[in-house]
Nucleic acid binder design. Structure first.
Lengths: 256, 256
DNA sequence: ATATGTGAATCAGTTCACAGCG
DNA sequence: CGCTGTGAACTGATTCACATAT
């Protein structure tokens, strides 16, 4: 194996690991903050601390983009901001549609994070005829019937789904058919999409369940889970947060 | 070196990989749907398809929980629902507070995903005195001043931060000091927490930037198919702000 | 002297492929 | 048989540690 095809051309922007891509926005945010404070340069150590990662990882990440630092000195903040922005495709304008203007959709439309950084809410779409024409975040809601036309007229390639779960796949199919190739899904459903379409999901319920898992573990670390405790011990367990062993173990057991 | 932190090879299958934990809610959702349709058993193949993963991964995941399947048959739906629920800590009640009742916080309070599965919105907290007493999703908003008391009175161990970025760390510190040990952060900030506190973040802006990265690459790839000449056809899509402009370097990226 | 950039080592997660059980 | 459960191989990500450049 490994005959041939393994070596990548060392040119930048080819083959950046997914995990690295996912951290670039984090670095960018930290750098932007530094830029606003007119900090001219930053070391991998400092920047890593600001982004909440370790410095070796950060350097490795940046090495995939190219050699943008200066040995013995650090990284030029402005220059890095520009390079990362470009790498992420933020130097261009991305029109986005939000489908499903309920509580969440409306909140997203109003969310500042959308407007910043090259993302522009091009249209809001909802299935409820009563919503049609009503402005949300200053943008009139349009009816689902016109979805395809809206996508095409605005050259939209990124769609946000904030519909109820039951409608999500259907909306997704229509978005994809109309030309959308990236979807951010807030509906609690697994979306099926053809190859070439990226889906990222944001799922509140899943995040909470993951937290609950760890929370449960903290609360009863030694008692096996064989017996489902009635567990109203949550309140009692709270106080245990104060004590944390240095290298752990021997967690306080809390009887109800 | 690194102080050989051997993961605990506990007597039983304690030590479920993080990646597996993150998928359990997905399986649970698929199983719940089957359960509602009164499907008695399901194979790893079918369930994997419903959850959007591959079947080997699913079987491996389940193997960390124990041997809950029957060879030649599959998994008992009801039984698995119970086992996964228990593993995730969903057989108990988790009171949750939401801090920051703006558009997003209100949407979260109204979100159905919260109410289901053992999570209960115990309180809504906001810094705006004008909000105090106003009901959101049927729950009166309380003022930040009372945060500590609210946490303690309700035995809250999971907090959701939906404040503006500037307030998030401060809120986080107070939550942790009051006994919260799991935080779901919607604010676009890296939170610093002591050991023993779990943070998960949900960041719209980051997700969009990741999508933009892939989107940009799709656009650029159509022409650079390794064989074709550098046709200008798809170059139109790629705005080609390729290298630094002759004059200003200042990128026109505005943060928020 | 100092901090980057990167091979090499390590660790985590995924997939394979088949033994083992119903 | 069919389908689970799992060692083994593999792939990807992280961390280490130091040569390298300023």
């Amino acid at each position: 194996m490994a005959t041939g095809r393994t070596h990548r051309p060392a040119t930048r922007s080819r083959g950046i690991p997914e995990a690295t891509v996912a951290r670039l926005p984090l670095y960018l945010r930290a750098l932007t903050a530094l830029s606003e404070r007119s900090v001219p340069t930053v070391s991998s150590e400092e920047l890593a601390a600001a982004a909440g990662v370790n410095s070796a990882k950060l350097r490795k990440d940046f090495s995939y983009l190219g050699s943008y630092g200066t040995r013995g000195v650090g990284y030029d903040v402005e220059y890095l901001v520009y390079q990362i922005s470009r790498e992420l495709g933020l130097t261009q304008d991305w029109p986005v549609v939000i489908v499903g203007i309920g509580n969440l959709g409306a909140a997203l439309a109003n969310y500042g994070g959308f407007a910043s950084r090259g993302f522009r809410v091009a249209a809001l779409i909802d299935a409820d005829p009563a919503m049609a024409g009503k402005p949300v975040a200053g943008i009139p809601v349009q009816h689902t019937d016109d979805l395809e036309k809206i996508i095409q007229d605005n050259g939209v390639s990124i769609g946000v789904i904030a519909t109820p779960a039951g409608a999500a796949q259907q909306v997704c199919d229509r978005l994809v058919a109309a030309g959308v190739t990236s979807i951010l899904n807030f509906a609690p459903t697994v979306l099926n999409v053809p190859d070439g379409v990226d889906v990222r999901k944001v799922d509140l319920s899943i995040e909470l369940q993951i937290l609950a898992f760890h929370e449960q573990r903290k609360a009863g670390e030694e008692s096996a889970a064989d017996t489902a405790l009635p567990a109203a011990a949550a309140a009692a367990a709270r106080k245990a947060s104060a004590d944390q062993g240095p290298d752990g173990d021997v967690p306080a057991v809390m009887p109800a």
